[in-house]
Design a protein around this nucleic acid. Structure first.
Lengths: 190, 190
DNA sequence: TATTTATGTCAGCCATGTTGACATATTTTG
DNA sequence: CAAAATATGTCAACATGGCTGACATAAATA
């Protein structure tokens, strides 16, 4: 409630919404809406994401790294042995852009590249111990925020958050993302 | 900048309270987890947000605008009559950075500035009809994605998404954001 | 052998963030 | 009222991290 559905209904105050009358939830989603932007989610995504990615910034600054380094470090840590081309696909940037930050990470000993065994053209990417350390430190900051959020919400919030975010991904990309994540978990376990 | 206040402490859920027995919520979050990053949410936030902000890009490109323009246009549309200083606070950028994109939006007739009535130093910001048009077009794209997501999830998903995202905002920023959003809704209705 | 593939690199452009210094008009204050 | 504070704008310079285009190299593959 709070906003949208210009249906003249009021909403006023009521900040974080407590339990809310359950009735309108379904009616609103299926029938009532259908007109006017969903301002609350649009704006909350902006603010939530801003704070979420803001956490690691101070730490990164100490290494003279930016968010680009963070993204690279994150995915290499999560997918050890990945190809440069895979990383490019995930990040959706050009190899020139990647090259810059990757070179810094390699030069400073956070990431290393190993020649592929079957295909020696490949430079498979791995984090060093130092790199894993930093990746974990950054992930921990973000995890604390997520846990604070889950702590404020009820049980099952992890699952609903995951389902919501998953549904927000491009239809023709969702499977790929989920496969990537599943594979990362598998590899990490080994 | 921006920065957080983290500190791993605080969790006492207030503000978003769940309505039901909060006991298990906190127990689960505090006791059961407590080790290892929450990789899935971290990564899903990355991918979901990437697709979410990616939608408007094509449209913006037609006007030779970028995401910076989008953000300005969005908040001015949502908060007509806001001061430049307010916008700077929300966007968390310098006035020089804002100045560039704002000037373009004004020059091209998407935003206009009016002298404040009580305080004539202020340049209050308003979208023009043209500006509102574009803002709505962009918001509509994002709304469609959100609706697709809600359609895939059950009823009540709007509410749970809102609560999750709200809880992800900095503790010492949440109230301000909610106040801003509530005020925007009020003004729009008038 | 010829071609394609995986990767890297040089050079330069663009968008958008930053700092610092300063200008101008207006409001507030001592 | 004069002085200080405030709201905004602007000039100049710089950093980061995107981009394109062109080209180089080694290795796999046809």
């Amino acid at each position: 409630m709070a906003d949208i559905n210009n249906s003249a209904k009021d909403s006023a105050g009521k900040a974080a919404s407590t339990s809310d009358g359950g009735a309108e939830g379904s009616a609103q989603a299926a029938a009532v809406r259908a007109e006017g932007p969903i301002w609350d989610i649009i704006e909350l995504l902006f603010f939530a994401y801003r704070d979420f990615v803001g956490d690691p910034d101070e730490v990164l600054a100490k290494y003279a790294f930016g968010r680009a380094h963070h993204r690279v470090l994150h995915f290499v840590n999560r997918n050890p042995g990945m190809k440069v081309a895979d990383l490019l696909d995930i990040l959706n940037i050009t190899k020139q852009s990647l090259g810059r930050v990757l070179k810094q990470l390699v030069d400073q000993g956070f990431v290393e590249q190993k020649e592929g065994e079957q295909d020696r053209r490949q430079r498979l990417l791995y984090v060093t111990a130092k790199g894993e350390n930093l990746a974990l430190k950054l992930a921990q900051l973000q995890t604390e925020r997520i846990e604070r959020a889950f702590g404020q919400l009820g049980p099952g919030s992890h699952d609903t958050a995951r389902r919501f975010l998953t549904a927000m991904i491009d239809d023709d990309n969702r499977e790929g993302v989920l496969r990537l994540m599943a594979r990362a978990d598998r590899v990490k376990k080994a």
